[in-house]
Simulated assay, not measured.
Amino acid sequence: MFWVLFLLVAWAGVLISCTRLVRSATEAAEPHTGAVTVRHHEELTLYEAAYLAGGPHRVVELTLVAMERERRLLLAHTGWATVVVPAGRDALERAVLAAFGPDGQSPVADVRTAAAGAEAVGRLAERLAEAGLALTEDVRSGVDDGVRAVWGATVLVLAMCGAALAVPDGGTPTGLVVCWFALPLVLALACLAMAAFDGRRNSGWASPAGQRLLTGLDLGGRGFLAAVAVRGVSAVPDPGLRAALSCDDRALIPRQRGH
């Protein structure tokens, strides 16, 4: 019966990690207690909608699309972006322009990463969190840490099951040992499945109040930029522009110097 000790270790890991994940998910689903007056304004701005739907990167993508639409930026399907008019109309546009560097040309992926960490994006996130519309960084990281902990517990269960089967115990059938270890494994996988379902249903950035405002946003009356804010790059109708925004770590061709 030495295998029971391994089973107890497996159960302890699963229960602790699942409790941690459930607590973090519950905190994310609760109304923002610090905001007595959750924003009751008539509608989200496009920047606010972009942040709540997809976080800092979505805000930058929306800004890039808006500036490209007005020909103040050129976004090539190869993944390079070029500044045409080096003047931003608001703090977020200025943050995007600053991400290009002095030569005014850079891979879209680099601009997106640099601008997403800009102070203007951080201030937008703070305003939404203070208004009770966005999740704080602590809440978001708590859910992510909880998911990782449950994955770790899943691996622990499998390891403990393997160790239990490796210990000679002629009095207990192998099938019975496996069945006992299947119980904590099922619990861990069920928690991961619920977390994945929650992740698909929610943006991961908006609080329940923010989700309600996103759901009620009138996309049809605000142009395709509203669709880009809520749905991301997939809502961009131009295939070339969609390709430019979808480039990940490096552009397809070298930068053309001298421009």
Rank of each mutant, 00 (worst) to 15 (best):
E93A: 01
L44S: 14
R112K: 14
E61G: 02
G258P: 06
A188M: 15
H41I: 10
E130K: 15
C247H: 02
V178C: 04
C18K: 13
V60C: 01
G232C: 10
G55N: 03
R94K: 11
H77V: 03
W3R: 08
A190G: 03
G221Y: 15
E43A: 14
T45W: 07
P168I: 06
V143L: 00
R222D: 08
C191W: 12
A164H: 07
A35Y: 09
G240L: 12
A125Y: 04
V150P: 09
E42Y: 05
R69G: 04
D248G: 00
A206V: 01
R123P: 02
L214N: 05
R94M: 05
V14K: 04
A149N: 06
W180A: 11
E43R: 12
E130S: 14
L75F: 03
A76C: 07
V236C: 00
L245P: 06
E27H: 09
L176G: 01
R20H: 01
G146R: 05
L187E: 09
V147S: 02
R250M: 05
D138C: 06
A196C: 01
A50R: 00
H259Y: 12
S203C: 10
D248W: 01
T82F: 15
A206F: 01
G204I: 08
R250H: 08
V147L: 06
R250G: 03
H259Q: 09
P237Y: 14
L135C: 11
L44V: 10
G171N: 11
D145K: 07
V178R: 08
R72L: 06
R71I: 04
L52R: 04
A10D: 00
P254V: 06
V96L: 02
A115M: 09
A244V: 10
T63Y: 03
D145A: 14
V157S: 02
L245S: 10
R257F: 15
L214W: 12
A166V: 11
A226Q: 01
V108A: 00
H32V: 08
A244P: 13
G13A: 15
F181V: 07
A159G: 09
A118G: 06
S24M: 00
R222Y: 10
L15F: 13
E68N: 07
A149W: 04
R94I: 03
R200Y: 12
A159N: 03
D90I: 07
Q105V: 15
R72I: 08
V186A: 12
A98I: 12
R123Q: 13
A115C: 12
W205I: 02
P86V: 11
R127T: 14
